[in-house]
């Protein structure tokens, strides 16, 4: 079995309401050093051995992310 980690984040310039709210909340808690918070999704995918990363990218473009508003980054997980 092969594993991939997928990070889905909003594209640059797309307003992220939960991120902006967390940012304001951290500043109001006294963490004045915070200048930006972006909240996205983290997906762990298990697939058959030998599955090419391009196929995972296809899954992201089709279903797991919306290319209109989101970017995704795929990282293969090396087995220990």
């Amino acid at each position: 079995m092969a594993r991939f980690q997928i990070f889905v984040t909003y594209k640059k310039g797309i307003f992220d309401p939960p991120g902006a709210t967390a940012e304001r909340a951290l500043v109001s808690l006294g963490y004045d050093e915070v200048s930006s918070v972006k909240i996205g999704k983290f997906i762990q995918l298990e697939v058959a051995d030998g599955t090419p990363q391009e196929r995972v990218a296809e899954m992201c473009g089709k279903l797991l992310a919306n290319p209109v508003i989101e970017d995704f980054r795929i990282e293969p997980v090396e087995e220990a």
Binding site: I14, F15, P17, P18, T21, N66, V68, I69
Partner: peptide
């Protein structure tokens, strides 16, 4: 309809959450 690309754009979470 936006997810199906029959209409452009997308709908995000309400600004005020």
């Amino acid at each position: 309809l936006t997810e199906a690309h029959l209409l452009p754009g997308a709908l995000l979470r309400n600004r005020g959450l």
